[in-house]
């Protein structure tokens, strides 16, 4: 099955090739197949936490970001059952936070919003909770808005140059868990680091201070093409 030292596998019948040890999601991207995800990010250890990249491998659900490709693997991705599940997960995120797109700095660049459009979500099937979440504006560089946080763990898997975590989970469970920010460390971030933290966040929970709405409507990331179209061929 192997070809030029690469592993052969299929996604929805499409022949694909992967490096040894490569995750299904990264290999899919290289082969022009979009597997949606909100927690996956290059350069950090996969978390498998948002569960949107669930694919079927031999009929079993596996997260594409944490599962390495094996030679001859048969992967199902774009099938109604999974699309429905992914859409439902996006909907739970919408009702479990407070996502008011029109006033959000990240609107148009937000991956949650973009996935909702891609899945043609109109109104979530679940009732809105409108929970009280709070904001933390106390650090000099970062404005932290928990209302928009989807707890994807991207920020908490990144570290500063000296290996310190600025963000971490706090608490546990469905009603208590949130991301906490180390205000002191956050204040010491350089402009570049703060900007990177903002860009890593798939939603508008981490914003760099003194910067807002820089990209006009019409030029934002997902204004013209749905998320994933940059990958698909």
């Amino acid at each position: 099955m192997k070809k030029d030292g690469k592993l052969y596998f299929e996604i929805d019948g499409k022949p694909c090739y992967a490096e040894e040890g490569q995750s299904i999601i990264d290999a899919a991207t290289e082969n022009g197949v979009f597997i949606p995800s909100l927690c996956h990010m290059e350069g950090v250890k996969p978390a498998g936490s948002c569960r949107i990249c669930n694919v079927k491998v031999d009929g079993r659900n596996m997260t594409a970001c944490t599962t390495p490709v094996e030679d001859g693997m048969i992967v199902e991705n774009d099938i109604p059952e999974l699309t429905e599940l992914r859409k439902a997960i996006v909907e739970t995120l919408f009702v479990s936070g407070n996502h008011h797109c029109p006033t959000c700095e990240k609107s148009g660049n937000c991956e949650l919003q973009a996935l909702a459009y891609r899945f043609q979500m109109l109104v979530p099937r679940f009732p809105y909770k409108f929970p009280e979440k709070g904001v933390n504006p106390r650090s000099d560089q970062i404005y932290h808005d928990r209302n928009r946080c989807i707890l994807c763990k991207r920020c908490i898997r990144t570290v500063t140059k000296d290996g310190k975590h600025v963000f971490a989970y706090h608490g546990r469970g469905g009603e208590d868990l949130h991301v906490a920010i180390d205000e002191e460390l956050a204040s010491r971030l350089t402009d570049e680091e703060a900007l990177e933290a903002m860009e890593n966040c798939p939603v508008g929970a981490i914003l760099k201070k003194e910067r807002g709405f820089e990209v006009p409507i019409g030029e934002r990331k997902y204004d013209h093409q749905p998320i994933g179209s940059e990958i698909e061929n």
Binding site: A47, G48, S49, C50, R51, I52, I89, T92, L93, V95, S96, F126, P127, K129, I150, L151, K153, Y169, G171, R172, G173, G174, E175, D176, L177
Partner: peptide, 20 residues
């Protein structure tokens, strides 16, 4: 709900929706 570690979206959020 209380004992969920909170990592996985469906476990963390959907169980609350079900409870409600």
């Amino acid at each position: 709900i209380e004992e969920s570690c909170g990592s996985c979206t469906p476990c963390r959020d959907l169980t609350v929706i079900l409870r409600d």
